[in-house]
């Protein structure tokens, strides 16, 4: 009916905007990935303008696949995402179960717990890598220096001095090396996203069937059995959602890597794209297409899970 057509048209602006947003830049990336395109070249100035004449076929893809950075970036992406997922889900479930019962100050505990999630990524990274993890000047360094000086002063103490003289001097861990900075990233993102997992698991726990639990208690189920056979299965769905939403966010992690790494070789896929994009646009675009494919694999699973409950 004609009276229905206008309301349906109202979704057009949003659809058109997003269509442009998706198609135009992505189309350009796809195009650039098949041509030789660099920002500056003394020998081949013709490569500095994007043109179909510089067609390279799958050459950029081959170049990217051959570079050892690419394999390392993929591995590192997966290590970082995998590490964060495991830790956030584990801590998330534990904490959600812990604070689900009413206790004094529950409201404040919730507020304290959720706070890290709202910290902007740039601040999160700056705060952790400098003020907390810096091996000399951060809390990491300061605390260990403090402990060492306490131990040193105790060595001269009467009676117990011999005990402390056996202690070695502690060394702070540096988080600025290639691999350790990946751990630093895992640490700070886990800190930021565990609250998210907690929040979702708590919401889900509140819809847990209390009568089912009471029935289980009457059936003789202990605390552990209740958790193992009722709570965990109940959380399976939210867990899947937490895992997949985070996977999508963390696959495109960027600010944290950039701030923490500062060119020490630690990189993930988006960071590698950024590096390539400093000059070799063709390679950056080919890497970008790989990133899109990777994200889509994850996305398909998420859309399936979310889609089921969507239009009930």
């Amino acid at each position: 009916m004609s009276s229905r057509r206008l309301p349906r048209l109202l979704q057009a602006p949003a659809v058109i905007l997003l269509l442009f947003w998706m198609l135009v830049p992505l189309g350009m990336t796809l195009f650039f990935s098949f041509i030789r395109y660099v920002l500056a070249s003394l020998n081949r100035p013709e490569w500095t303008t994007p043109s179909i004449d510089n067609w390279r076929g799958f050459g950029n893809y081959a170049f990217v696949l051959d570079s050892k950075d690419f394999l390392f970036a993929i591995q590192n992406s997966l290590l970082i995402v995998g590490g964060i997922l495991f830790l956030t889900v584990f801590f998330g479930v534990m904490i959600a179960v812990l604070i689900n019962k009413v206790f004094p100050g529950q409201g404040i505990v919730r507020v304290l717990l959720i706070s890290p999630f709202f910290i902007m990524p740039a601040v999160n990274a700056v705060l952790w890598i400098n003020m907390i993890l810096d091996p000399v000047l951060g809390l990491n360094g300061l605390a260990i220096e403090g402990i060492n000086s306490v131990i040193a002063s105790m060595r001269d103490a009467p009676v117990v001095g011999w005990f402390f003289s056996l202690w070695p001097e502690f060394k702070p861990i540096s988080f600025r090396a290639t691999q350790t900075s990946a751990y630093a990233v895992i640490m700070m993102v886990t800190w930021q996203w565990t609250p998210f997992a907690v929040l979702i698991f708590m919401t889900s726990l509140q819809s847990e069937d209390e009568q089912q639990k009471e029935a289980a208690i009457l059936d003789g189920a202990g605390k552990w059995s209740q958790f193992r056979f009722l709570t965990l299965p109940h959380l399976a769905r939210p867990m899947a959602i937490v895992v997949m939403i985070q996977a999508i966010f963390h696959l495109s992690l960027y600010a944290e890597i950039e701030i923490v790494s500062r060119g020490n070789g630690n990189k993930n896929l988006p960071y590698l794209i950024g590096e390539f994009a400093n000059n070799n646009i063709g390679a950056a675009s080919a890497t970008g297409i790989f990133a899109v494919i990777l994200a889509n694999i994850v996305a398909i699973f998420l859309l399936r899970a979310v889609g089921k409950t969507l239009m009930e």
Binding site: L26, M28, T29, Y254, I273, G288, I289
Partner: peptide, 10 residues
Amino acid sequence: MLPAAAVLYP
């Protein structure tokens, strides 16, 4: 879900 980095240069 489109990774932002993929369309950085465009």
